[in-house]
């Protein structure tokens, strides 16, 4: 099996010819898509929820749903949009009913703990995380979709199942929330943080 391209696009397009194949074939497609998109989706999940444990679980829930739908997928060119939608719904539902989530991280697995503790160790990063988590979840989702994922108002509206005008008002309020929460700390946060990329 060939490796996915850097952005996975070429591989994803090629998958369209394989969708009626055997289980092994569609599982290869699934693995290729996970390799291409898993990390990015998990980062999106982390920005939404602020917790690496939960981000891993939301990512797994998303890919499990993709796996279950894979044989019915007709157009792989909109797979990214579908994956984002599933992730957002998993996040919004999870927060609405915190216990309503299928287990996907094994309870005995401590793999995420040490790193998540380290990541929270720097006050600036903690401040930023706390600030984002204080924004109501749908507004936070709008900010992440619009400014981190660079989606248009219309694309965000489609993902969240609301009107473009709702996205615009939620964006405005979300930005106000962020300014209110961060206040003067905003400039401090723009300095490079220890432990980050060079």
């Amino acid at each position: 099996m060939s490796h996915p391209t850097e952005d996975g696009k070429g591989r994803v397009e090629a998958m369209a010819f394989l969708r009626l194949g055997s289980r092994r074939e569609y599982e290869e497609e699934f693995v290729a898509y996970y390799t291409a998109r898993g990390d990015q989706l998990r980062k999106t999940a982390y920005l939404l929820c602020g917790d690496w444990h939960l981000a891993q679980d939301l990512t797994q829930i998303t890919f499990t749903k993709l796996y279950q739908a894979w044989r019915r997928i007709e157009r792989h060119d909109v797979l990214d949009q579908y994956a984002r939608r599933v992730l957002l719904r998993a996040f919004l539902d999870e927060r609405r009913r915190p216990w309503r989530r299928e287990l996907s991280t094994e309870p005995e697995s401590p793999a995420l703990d040490s790193v998540s503790q380290d990541a929270q160790g720097f006050p600036e990063r903690m401040l930023l995380r706390t600030a984002l988590m204080r924004i109501p979840k749908r507004r936070r989702a709008v900010l992440v979709l619009r400014f981190w994922m660079d989606l248009s108002t219309e694309q965000a509206a489609d993902l969240l199942g609301c009107s473009a005008s709702t996205i615009r008002s939620q964006t405005s309020r979300g930005l106000d929330d962020l300014r209110d929460v961060l206040g003067g700390a905003l400039d401090d946060l723009k300095r490079p943080l220890p432990g980050g990329r060079p």
Partner: peptide, 22 residues
Amino acid sequence: VKELCDLMLDGPQPPLRTSDEA
């Protein structure tokens, strides 16, 4: 906002579950 998101991700991250595990 994009800068803040990048900063939030600009630290150590746990390893992503492998594709075989997923």
